[in-house]
């Protein structure tokens, strides 16, 4: 596990949209298992399903702009023994078709692989309607559902391949913009596990999706400030790897969660539930604070909504204060 830690990514890191890794992973999953099929709701290129569609035209189904149909057709395909990946933008799936997911996939326990692309504020110029911030929250409360948010394109590829051999309903969120790559093909990934990416003693930063990249950038800033941060990357939000998180908190005694979504009910909510019942320590949630997004350039929006490395740094300082001087500060 030791070699999992950072590999100088800060100096010459590459960027690629996470969804590209999904496209490659789906193609590989399709090559590994002929039961893998795919459906899309008129966003085949955009969600990167085109690679699969071009290679397996008989196993790809264009559903049209019909997200309710998308997931229920997926349920039927799963009933017929297939492993269906169904993709659209997260704002529409699971945004529009939540009841169909709840009844025909979650309650019905069909192993449909729901892929919501273009999640988060970094969707950018399209604005609030398309910046899905509530998907983690929505999907996390569904029984039987596994919720995944890989951190970069390399991890998304592994995650997609792992989903194809997981027999539960899965939701995976993807992002539109190119984001920093901080894992390698050798970095371990397993559904249900969280990973310590940076060891530290003062504060634990628990982050998911591409926000782990921002958290890792913040590590350097904080090191200069004299704060030793532990970073845990959480690509599986449900089931949450509570053991790894609690073990770290027993050492650091304070936690900052970071996600590109609503802080209510998302990863921050999940960690609040975990520590509230097991190990109450000071918590600060970095995320979108009960409001909607707006148009703008991705980096501009990350800064405006307080989701960049600098804001993570300030949040860690804040939690250090609380840890050292109690909640009054």
């Amino acid at each position: 596990m030791e070699d999992l830690y950072l590999h100088d990514f800060k100096k010459d890191y590459l960027e690629e949209p996470i969804r590209k890794g999904f496209g490659r992973g789906l193609l590989k999953a399709g090559q590994i298992n002929s039961s893998v099929v795919a459906c899309c709701a008129d966003l085949t290129d955009s969600t990167q399903m085109s690679l699969f569609a071009d290679n397996f035209p008989d196993r790809f189904f264009e559903i049209g702009v019909a997200e309710q149909n998308l997931v229920t057709v997926g349920s039927g395909l799963a009933a017929g023994g297939k492993i269906p990946f169904v993709s659209s933008y997260a704002a529409f799936s699971p945004g529009r078709n939540y009841e169909q997911i709840r009844t025909t996939i979650s309650l019905n326990n069909r192993p449909v692989k729901i892929v919501g692309s273009h999640s988060g504020i970094s969707v950018g110029p399209d604005g609030a309607t398309h910046q899905m911030l509530e998907d983690i929250t929505l999907m996390r409360v569904l029984p039987n559902m596994v919720v995944l948010a890989p951190g970069d394109s390399i991890e998304a590829e592994k995650c997609t391949i792992a989903m194809a051999s997981d027999n539960r309903p899965n939701y995976m969120r993807l992002a539109r913009e190119a984001t920093g790559i901080f894992t390698t093909t050798k970095t371990p990934f397993e559904i249900g596990k969280a990973y310590v990416y940076e060891k530290g003693n003062d504060v634990t930063v628990v982050s998911t999706g591409s926000m782990t990249f921002q958290a890792l950038l913040a590590v350097d800033l904080l090191y200069k400030d004299g704060i030793d941060v532990e970073v845990i990357h959480v690509p599986t939000i449900k089931p949450l790897d509570g053991q790894t998180i609690l073990k770290s908190l027993a050492k650091t005694g304070a936690v900052v969660t970071v996600e590109e979504g609503q802080i209510n009910g998302g990863l921050g909510g999940a960690v609040a539930e975990l520590i509230g019942e097991n190990l109450p320590v000071p918590l600060f949630r970095v995320g979108v604070k009960d409001r909607f997004g707006e148009s703008g350039e991705p980096n501009q929006l990350l800064e405006h909504f307080g989701l960049d490395a600098e804001h993570i740094r300030l949040s860690v300082h804040h939690i250090m204060e609380r840890k050292n001087h109690g909640n009054k500060s």
Partner: peptide
Amino acid sequence: GSGLSQAAGLGLA
């Protein structure tokens, strides 16, 4: 409203 879609998925499978 969701039965016919499931039949469609089964039909494709």
